[in-house]
Design a protein around this nucleic acid. Structure first.
Ligand SMILES: NC(=O)c1ccc[n+]([C@@H]2O[C@H](COP(=O)([O-])OP(=O)(O)OC[C@H]3O[C@@H](n4cnc5c(N)ncnc54)[C@H](O)[C@@H]3O)[C@@H](O)[C@H]2O)c1
Ligand SMILES: NC(=O)c1ccc[n+]([C@@H]2O[C@H](COP(=O)([O-])OP(=O)(O)OC[C@H]3O[C@@H](n4cnc5c(N)ncnc54)[C@H](O)[C@@H]3O)[C@@H](O)[C@H]2O)c1
Lengths: 217, 217
DNA sequence: GAAGATATGTGAATCGTTTCACAACAACGA
DNA sequence: TCGTTGTTGTGAAACGATTCACATATCTTC
């Protein structure tokens, strides 16, 4: 139950940085290097590694290959992760044809849509009728889905995915789906990110949450 | 300097929920209602409001219209926010044609690209040559940009935006751009979100950060 | 092989955020 | 008018995450 809210995120980031360092010819890293790269303190890097028993050497830091092996295993990078995309509109199709996933060991194996004009079972990544969702998910053992349907279909699609016993959802509809027993949800709300950015920019430097000068007293 | 890292995010979420309640005919809300909606405690809702001097009534809760007025002002929703998109490929174009932004008072006023085949200065949302970026940004007083260029162009584009004195960036390239003096950056890394989801799903319920049973002793 | 230099690994201290708990107050009913 | 009810507003407590600080291990050099 106690889940450090973004240590896993950092693990992925360490991994990404480590690959870059490795490509540059480095063999070892120090907690300072990783701290600089992620803009966190070296102590936190060490704490994180310690949490997952990623050990180094009291002098020469950490062996990059060693860290990468362990991180890859920890993050499930030793096998290709297969996902589906529900809603093959603008966002959905952009994601389906995104080559960056492959590099990360993520494979989009199918799309699903309710619009007959979009369905294309013979495409290299087949787009199937949403009615086939449950059968497909069960047969192929899919655990993760991306939701990219219009806002007003999102909660219906959410129910379908739950019925198909999907274990994790990445949701692009600006309708916060609430995680439920046995199904983790992460919401990506681009509008919200922008609003946040406006706010941050507006109050950059200035007194941010203006606690309203107390009426003299 | 001390910046509560996601209180602004919550402010936007309150706003969104309040509009839904209003549409349903509600006039007042209680901290409990908002707490339920955002899956946070009512106490935090009250603390947040208190921080921004959003006051309610000791019995009948908060007046929705009142909250919305104040939140809108606080979040800069009283005027349309004008943004640009750099990199008009798959993601960039999906965002340019996304109608959801308009609803939120966000207007994409131009796109920029380096590929002549994509440039279209006469389109309803013009796509201009990246060379015109600085001039345009200064002339139009643009403060926020979305970056949707390929990974290896990201940091170059970042420099161009900084030179144009852009104040905030929403970055889709999986290359963590580091915020700098006078420029806030938010990175959206979809691959990272997916990896995180895999991790969460893999360890759902089970012992998560396996602290490696100590060697008897 | 001892001395010095340098990084890790981690318990304790710190810091920021969230929750608790309750006084203060508004509305309502008798 | 006065008690009862229900909700806010907020100091203080609890909690969780991060940083500090240092003992400990390893490498390097003489
Ligand atoms: N396009 C963007 O840039 C953008 C940005 C932020 C958020 N979003 C959000 O992402 C979601 C998708 O946006 P989009 O622009 O790709 O929309 P879109 O209209 O282009 O695509 C939606 C697709 O979902 C399909 N669909 C509708 N109901 C369905 C159902 N019940 N089952 C299966 N498929 C169904 C439609 O046929 C369509 O192909 C929306 O919720 C939108 O708010 C989009
Ligand atoms: N497509 C996706 O689903 C997806 C998902 C996650 C992340 N991303 C990331 O988003 C970014 C864009 O992805 P995409 O699929 O839209 O790529 P894309 O190749 O379709 O589009 C990139 C656009 O940027 C333009 N460009 C290149 N260099 C430029 C420069 N120096 N100045 C201005 N414009 C320039 C190109 O001409 C092209 O139009 C990439 O970094 C990618 O990793 C994309």
């Amino acid at each position: 139950m106690p889940m450090k809210h973004d240590i896993a995120q950092r693990l992925s980031q360490y991994r990404s940085v480590l690959y870059k360092l490795k490509a540059l010819g480095f063999v070892r890293v120090f907690s300072d290097n990783l701290g600089d790269a992620l803009e966190i303190s070296p102590a936190l890097v060490r704490k994180d590694f310690s949490t997952f028993s990623l050990t180094g050497n009291k002098r020469g830091g950490y062996r990059i290959d060693d860290l990468l092996d362990k991180l890859n295993r920890l993050l499930g990078k030793d096998k290709v992760q297969r996902i589906i995309i529900v809603g093959c509109g603008k966002i959905g199709q952009a994601l389906m044809s995104y080559s960056g996933f492959t590099r990360e060991g993520i494979q989009v194996v199918a799309g699903f849509d309710s619009n007959a004009a979009v369905i294309a079972p013979q495409a290299s990544i087949p787009i199937l009728d949403i009615k086939e969702l449950k059968t497909y998910v069960k047969r192929e053992g899919i655990r993760i889905a991306i939701v990219a349907v219009p806002d007003n279909s999102a909660s219906h699609v959410f129910d379908l995915l739950r019925a198909a016993e999907i274990k994790g959802i990445l949701n692009f509809a600006p309708v916060p789906l609430k995680g439920a027993e046995g199904c983790v949800v992460r919401n990506i709300n681009i509008g919200l990110e922008l609003e946040n950015l406006f706010y941050l920019v507006r109050f950059a430097g200035k007194v941010p949450p203006q606690p309203a000068a107390r009426p003299a007293g």
